[in-house]
Amino acid sequence: MDNKIKMKADNLNFYYGDFHALHEISLDFKKNEVTALIGPSGCGKSTLLRCLNRMNDLIPYSRVEGSVLLEGEDIYDPNVDVVTLRRHVGMVFQKPNPFPKSIFENVAYGMRVNGVRDKSYLVNQVEKSLKQAALWEEVKDRLDESALGLSGGQQQRLCIARALAVEPEVVLMDEPASALDPIATQKIEELIHQLKELYTIIIVTHNMQQAARVSDVTAFFYIGKLIEVDQTETIFTKPKLQQTSDYITGRFG
């Protein structure tokens, strides 16, 4: 596999019971790039995202055909440990979901669960992750306070710090800013731009303008199929397909 590619969906099909939700998706995700998945509701973009770290395994009667490769290895191989996979491919959800614990414990949790006991390592990692998530300055003097006391935007950055603390390679984001106000959204978007220096980021968003602002590559989905994928500046200035153009100009969807 081309060593610029971090993850790859290869002829991926996904079924919720009998419902064929994803049709032969083949898509590369390059290292240190932000890929945005866009499309109208029900097009399969969140389904695809959840395939990338096997969150869909939790859904009964679901079935995968085809493969998803992380650095050339198929994550659906029976030998793969799903918990380890989800450390390497982290996820941030739409609604901030901090644990009802202190700010420090939220970020340390993943590491503790993975067996880390060294206190100074935990302290350093928590600080590093909160700095990467651009939250450190705001919380450094109250790490023992409950995470539930933070604002929505801060909670979301905490969730990002939590995902980063276990040193993933890929960060999946499912509409990370849709529950946030404009200033908090802008902070998250700036953050995504900084994070791609270190991680590969795949983001699902309903907000096309956001996709235009934050991503390097945009993939447009419709009814479970990948319609067009290209450099973001091409998709938003001269998309190749009429259907893509109709969607991004708001003529449908």
Binding site: Q209, A212, R213, T232, E233, F236, T237
Partner: peptide
């Protein structure tokens, strides 16, 4: 001109 169009499209 192409740069301007790109900026208009990407940053609104």
């Amino acid at each position: 001109e192409e740069e301007c169009l790109k900026i208009l499209a990407l940053y609104q």
